[in-house]
Amino acid sequence: MNPFLIILIKTSVIYGGLIGAAALMTLAERKFSAWMQLRHGPNRVGPWGLLQPLADGIKFIFKEELCPDGANPWIFRLAPILSAVPAMLTVAVIPFAGNVTLFGVDFGNLSITDLDIGVLFLVAIGGLSVYGVILGGWASNSKYSLLGGLRASAQMISYELSLILIILCVVAMTGSLDLRAITEAQNTGNPLSWNVFSQPLAFLIFVIATFAETNRHPFDFAECEPELVAGFHTEYSSMKFALFFLGEYCAMIVMACLTATLFLGGYSVPFWEDAPWFIQLGTFFAKAGFFAFLFIWVRWTLPRFRFDQLMHLGWKVFLPLALANLLVTGAVISLA
């Protein structure tokens, strides 16, 4: 089969899956939050409310597009795109499963690309998502939006440091920046070789830092409803708002996938080293799905932090801990 065609098929399947998963996640967020509050959640559109995201999408399309007075129209339009695109680009390097053979056609490894510097790509592109938030906040010409954007930028930069340092620990363990190599190094059939057991502290810091990085509860200072009336996207409506939403949920899904890949061995099946690809894919979905659920679970459990507490946690707790963790990891690797 034409290799170009194979890449095209893989890309469209993975991006379709990502957008579908993001849509499903908006539904899951509402369903789980409802269940945790002893409610039913959306159950009118389709069976068990499964078509609710579709209804939401149609609603978004038919809403009126507003641009506030005095706002910079170009940057106002650019911001949602800058928020959604980096979040969706990062999924390109996530390895979902091993070699896929379907209908007698060898599709190769199930990921859009196995980049040599996959982790670096992910961190670099992921770091760009902060622009959507800041520029959106600034371009809205509203003080609440501006405050939300400022907070988001400070928060995301602070936690990106810890996040990168933790990723470095895992990279040092494997000796590769390729996410597939990191997965394969953990795919020994023995779950104890997963990084979560050799790097428990790193795992903990990473999971918490992903919450801050994606602006989710309990660190959602960018959109803090009670003080900032939704922060950077207060002034947005219609599909522009939907793009911000899509960006947020895609970022969550990518972060869940990344946590599963870095610490839980990605698609490696416990006690079955060379499982067929669909079992690997199922395992991956189970692991990533758990972390995606964790995002929702924590959101509907914990109250919001205060902003100074957030900064204190990021700079005075996580950064030293991450540095110490990196130091110990390096020492152990060089001595072993």
């Binding site: 040599d116 510097i117 670096l120 670099a124 770091g127 760009l128 902060v130 622009y131 906040g137």
Partner: peptide, 26 residues
């Protein structure tokens, strides 16, 4: 130079320009 490209985006895009933007807004 893949690595340089990634570093360029990581440092300039992810850090320096955010700092500029931050100061402009501050």
């Amino acid at each position: 130079f893949q690595f340089l490209a990634a570093i360029q985006i990581l440092v300039y895009g992810g850090a320096i320009m955010v700092l500029f933007l931050f100061v402009v807004m501050l």
